[in-house]
């Protein structure tokens, strides 16, 4: 342990105390750096092994992976990501559309409306939403929310059926994309609200006072001095939420009816997603089937990676802007 002299000398520039008994420094520094590198290696390994284990199944595919709708890797060896990727993106965007306005409202409530004494405990209450496990939301969704949404879904379909999202004949309501998206929205709400709350709280007090001193109402003050400042933070929070929604598995696996078609009819029982399909199909999959699921997981990994990296870049840029502005 005490023999790694080379790294110690290499690191002596940054390790200020040059002590004669610092023979643990090299190994310790090596361990700490190594741990960080392990983390990078894991990220790389995820990509490498998903690709390598997906290749045999992709080669056995008798259809086009990117355009095929059906998922029959076990028997006829025809499978494609099209319907699943569509369901993933649409259900997540729908969840985002539901969650973002509510989350921004919640964030404003905690940062600018709630009595100061209550703000922290109430914020904690919203954070608790994130502590409920996904499978519990799934259970709640199938047993409570799905029946609850049946009536409103049928009403929307009957009265506003001309609107493409609400259209559809036959069975209306039940295990629909809307039900899944509402559950997803509840699950991503805490993260969007938490990040938005932080950026709203960071809005410069002196600008808020300037707005009030001009005779702004509370809402006008927020519109002038808080929202413009917080916008990049809210955008990246929403994107992080989008990434979460796309990768969310068990709740939608219980709710989505596992159909393989592309339709915008969110009130009919047609819905699926990459993650839900992995959870539902893994148990009964053979070798090709599992390879196919790994391939779909790779697609999910890439999509969420892109969304998350974009979100992080927006946040990091804002941090720098904030630092130079301060």
């Amino acid at each position: 342990m005490a023999t790694n002299v080379r790294t110690r000398d290499g690191g002596s520039a940054t390790s200020r105390p040059a002590s004669r008994r610092s023979h643990g420094e090299g190994p310790f520094r090596f361990l700490a750096t190594g741990a960080g590198v392990v983390l990078l290696a894991i990220m790389a390994a995820i990509a490498v092994f998903l690709v390598s284990e997906a290749i045999p199944a992709l080669q056995a595919n008798k259809s086009s992976f990117l355009t095929e709708l059906t998922w029959e890797p076990n028997s006829s060896r025809e499978f494609g990501i099209a319907a699943l990727a569509f369901g993933t993106v649409v259900s997540s965007l729908l969840a985002l559309a539901i969650a973002t306005p509510v989350a921004v409202g919640v964030a404003l409530f905690i940062s600018h409306y709630a009595p100061r004494r209550l703000a922290a405990p109430l914020g904690y209450l919203v954070d608790l939403l994130a502590a409920v496990p996904s499978v519990v939301y799934g259970l709640w969704g199938v047993t409570f929310l799905v029946p609850l949404l049946r009536g409103p879904s049928q009403w929307l379909n009957a009265n506003l059926g001309w609107f493409p999202l609400f259209s559809g004949e036959g069975i209306v309501g039940g295990k629909t994309m809307l039900a899944g998206s509402v559950v997803l929205a509840i699950m991503i709400l805490p993260i969007i609200a938490a990040i938005s709350r932080e950026v709203f709280l960071q809005a410069p007090k002196m600008n808020e006072e300037a707005a009030l001193a001009l005779g702004a109402t509370r809402w006008e003050m927020i519109r002038i001095a808080v929202l413009p400042f917080g916008r990049p933070g809210v955008i990246s929070a929403a994107m992080l939420g989008l990434g979460r929604a796309m990768g969310e598995t068990i709740a939608v696996a219980l709710i989505f009816p596992a159909t393989f078609d592309i339709t915008f009819q969110i009130l009919t029982p047609h819905a699926n997603s990459i993650a839900a399909n992995i959870a539902n199909a893994f148990g009964e999959a053979n070798d090709i089937g599992r390879g196919a699921l790994i391939a779909s997981g790779l697609v999910l990994f890439i999509i969420t990676l892109l969304v998350n990296m974009a979100a992080r870049m927006i946040i990091n840029r804002r941090k720098e802007y904030g630092r130079t502005g301060a």
């Binding site: 960080g36 390994a45 998903l50 990768g247 993650a275 990994f301 969304v307 998350n308 979100a311």
Partner: peptide
């Protein structure tokens, strides 16, 4: 880069982590 990928890693879907361990 470690710091950036730690952030990105928070966004790795749990099902993907499972598939990776399965594959590896």
């Amino acid at each position: 880069s470690i710091s950036f990928f730690v952030d990105v890693m928070t966004g790795v879907p749990s099902v993907v982590a499972g598939l990776f361990v399965f594959a590896f």
